[in-house]
Amino acid sequence: MPLIERQGKVEKQLYFEDVEVGSEVTPLAKVATTQMLVRWAGASGDFNPLHYDETFATSQGVGSPIVHGALKRAWLGQLMTNWIGGQGFLKKFSCQYRGMDYPRKMKTMTEPEEGETWWCKGTVTKKYVDGDQHIVECDIWVENGQGEKTTPGNATVILPSRA
């Protein structure tokens, strides 16, 4: 999948009135690569060798370097901020790292090998008005190539209202 398609895109502005319980959060495809893990380490300051050193990862019992939990969390943040648009606010967010994910290796300087694609997804579980705030709650998760939810969580967002 070329980079431009992996980045997802910001939808047109979403309003409170546009969503119902059961509505789908626009899914976001992500590809974890060894290169992305290195860039994440630099950007986040997490230099734990568990995420780039084969021998160390093996000694820690995970087999080979694994995707940072916080990187998957950042993907879920992107899922939500793409969906709620420039007028929305991500209020609350949680996720749990339940399963290990392993990045694709690089084939060229910029393109990964064929392999697993992860999907960030979500559904609306609740919508309500609290004072002047229009609030929507969602179940969110990262799904691996086998369709397993390795990183489940919840998000609460404030959306603009047309009212």
Binding site: Q7, M36, Q78, T81
Partner: peptide
């Protein structure tokens, strides 16, 4: 790093 091009 996370490939998030959001202009915000």
């Amino acid at each position: 790093a996370i490939e998030d091009p959001n202009p915000l």
